[in-house]
Design a protein around this nucleic acid. Structure first.
Lengths: 139, 139
DNA sequence: ATTCTCTGTTCTTTTTAAGAACATTATATA
DNA sequence: TATATAATGTTCTTAAAAAGAACAGAGAAT
């Protein structure tokens, strides 16, 4: 079990509150570099600091570290339309995926582009991606 | 800010589930003595271990560490999140994106993998994708 | 009274995150 | 576009804090 979502969430909420890393660090009385490390998944804050973060952002700790099913509402709309499809899927995985995308603007942009490519070109990308990820998985 | 409640809560939920310290320690794959230390407030578990505890007891992390009048807070989470995501984004773009993903299993699998990569590796992929897409856009 | 189980504490080691300094990237302004 | 400035990312070292093992004590059962 690893907190994959936490780095994204932290960055997301920090930016939502228009803080720079420095400003957030000051609020917590920690160094800025450690904030950067949290956001890049190199290190996890301790329980107390995590709690302070959730207070600053006015969210639950569970939400901050990304275990709360936030996208339930968004998804339920789609469930109406795509009932058969969604039931076949691992639903929670899809939830997490959407959540992830919502918080990752850059990826959103990429996917939006990808989406509008001709299918043939999409497949080209797919093949590339596959290779790249397989490579990375080795480590 | 100190987590006064946590030790009590931990002990309470452990006993409620009829675990000895040893049994709980085994579930978490830690030593028993550290469980004792948690319960006596000498030491705090790290974020990940705390999360595991909340899973074992089937409660939120906020409840476990004793900061949550759960229901109120959690609810406002949804509200906050709902507003921010839906209002801030280009809504239709997001919907189309989700739509697209739901229909594209292969992409889902890829993204699920991507999501669980370390941020650094994600960025490698990002750069890669960027180049590939830019190339394709020329045609 | 004795054994067994459960829990608490101490001491040492190991793990892990924190901070400072440096490097890079992004943004603004001329 | 070039340059300056701000913001972010990374590395290396140090410091902190928790983990584990071993020992100690308390309570229950026989």
């Amino acid at each position: 079990m690893v907190l994959y979502q936490f780095p994204h969430n932290l960055k997301h909420y920090r930016q939502k509150h228009q803080f720079t890393q420095q400003q957030l660090a000051d609020l917590l009385k920690v160094s800025r570099s450690v904030v950067a490390k949290w956001e890049n998944g190199h290190v996890l804050p301790d329980l107390l600091t995590a709690l302070k973060l959730s207070n600053i952002f006015q969210i639950t700790l569970d939400t901050l570290i990304g275990v709360a099913p936030e996208t339930t509402f968004v998804l339920s709309d789609y469930q109406a339309h795509y009932q058969e499809t969604i039931n076949n899927l691992d639903e929670s995985s899809l939830h997490q995926l959407i959540d992830f995308i919502i918080k990752n603007k850059h990826l959103q942009t990429q996917l939006d582009l990808y989406r509008t490519l001709p299918v043939k070109q999409q497949k080209t990308i797919d093949r590339f991606l596959q290779v790249a990820m397989d490579e990375l998985k080795k480590y």
